[in-house]
C-alpha cells in the first residue's frame, strides 16, 4: 500500500443553514488518480474551495504530506504543494499564455522590489529560469505555439490546458482538477486523458472532479462519491459503479 498524500478528517462546511459538506473524510494516496463525483450541488467544488483555502472549514481539517495543512490562506496551500484548476476557466484573460504560467512560478521564486529595480545578476538568472520553466510547461501541455497570445484569445480546450500549465508552475504534489473536461469535444477529452495519465506518470497525484462518468471510470484508480455533502462511497471504479447507494443518488428513488 502506498503512503497517504492527502487526508481529509471530518471536514464540515456550513453556509448559514445549508450543510454543504458533512464529515467528509477521505484519503488520497501518493501517485493516485482520485476521482470525486456526485450529482450537481453535492459539494464537490465546495470541498475544493475549502481545501485550497478559499473558504475556511466549519470544522475538521486536512493532513497533507504527513503534516497538518494550513488552509488559512490560499497562497499557503499553494506553497504546501496543492494546485488547482477551475470549473469555469479563470485565467488572467488579459495576460499572455506565457505570463499566466509565469505567475504560477511566483511562489517558487523570490526577487522582490529591490531585485526588480536593480535587476542584478541573481534576478536576471531567476527571470530567465522562470521564463524557461514556463515555456517548458507550455510545451508539456502542448500549447507552446500560443505562448505570446493573450489568454482570452485561446480556444476553449487550449484555455483548459493553460490552466493546467499554470497550476503545474507552482510545483504541486497534488493537482486538483475541477471538471477539466467540461465543454470539451471527444478529441479534446481524449487528449486530456493522455495529459492526465502523463502527469501521473511524471509523479503527480491527481484529484479529479468530473461529470463525464466514462472519463472518470476509465481514468481514476479510486473514486469518492459525494451526495448532499456526505461521502456515500469510496472505492475502485468497478465497485463504485455497482454500489446501490451511488446508483440511488444518481437515479433518485
Amino acid at each position: 500500500m502506498s503512503t497517504a498524500l492527502l487526508e481529509a478528517n471530518g471536514v464540515c462546511k456550513r453556509f448559514g443553514g445549508v450543510r454543504a459538506l458533512h464529515k467528509v473524510s477521505l484519503t488520497i494516496h501518493q501517485g493516485e488518480i482520485y476521482g470525486l463525483i456526485g450529482p450537481n450541488g453535492a459539494g464537490k467544488t465546495t470541498l475544493f474551495n475549502v481545501l485550497t483555502g478559499l473558504y475556511g472549514a466549519s470544522s475538521g481539517g486536512f493532513n497533507f504530506a504527513g503534516a497538518p495543512l494550513d488552509i488559512g490562506a490560499p497562497h499557503l496551500v499553494a506553497k504546501a504543494g496543492i494546485a488547482r484548476t477551475f470549473q469555469n476557466i479563470r485565467l488572467f484573460a488579459n495576460m499572455t499564455a506565457l505570463e499566466n504560467v509565469m505567475v504560477g512560478r511566483h511562489l517558487r521564486t523570490h526577487a522582490g522590489v529591490i531585485g526588480a529595480v536593480l535587476f542584478n545578476a541573481a534576478t536576471r538568472a531567476e527571470e530567465h529560469a522562470i521564463q524557461r520553466r514556463a515555456v517548458e510547461l507550455l510545451h508539456y501541455v502542448g500549447i507552446a505555439d500560443r505562448a505570446n497570445d493573450l489568454a482570452r484569445n485561446l480556444s476553449y480546450g487550449d484555455q483548459r490546458r493553460l490552466e493546467i500549465a499554470r497550476a503545474l508552475a507552482t510545483d504541486p504534489k497534488l493537482l486538483a482538477l475541477d471538471e477539466p473536461a467540461a465543454g470539451m469535444n471527444a478529441t479534446e477529452t481524449a487528449a486530456l486523458r493522455t495529459l492526465v495519465r502523463g502527469l501521473r506518470a511524471d509523479g503527480l497525484t491527481i484529484l479529479l472532479i468530473e461529470h463525464d462518468v466514462k472519463l472518470v471510470m476509465g481514468l481514476c484508480d479510486r473514486i469518492a462519491v459525494l451526495d448532499y455533502g456526505e461521502m456515500i462511497a469510496e472505492d475502485v471504479p468497478e465497485k463504485v459503479q455497482r454500489n446501490p447507494k451511488v446508483i440511488e443518488a444518481y437515479l433518485g428513488t
Binding site: 485550497t52 483555502g53 497562497h75 488547482r84 488572467f92 511566483h106 517558487r108
Partner: peptide
Amino acid sequence: ENPEIARLMGV
C-alpha cells in the same frame, strides 16, 4: 486582474 485567483496560484 483577479486577486483571488492570483492568491490561489501562490501569489
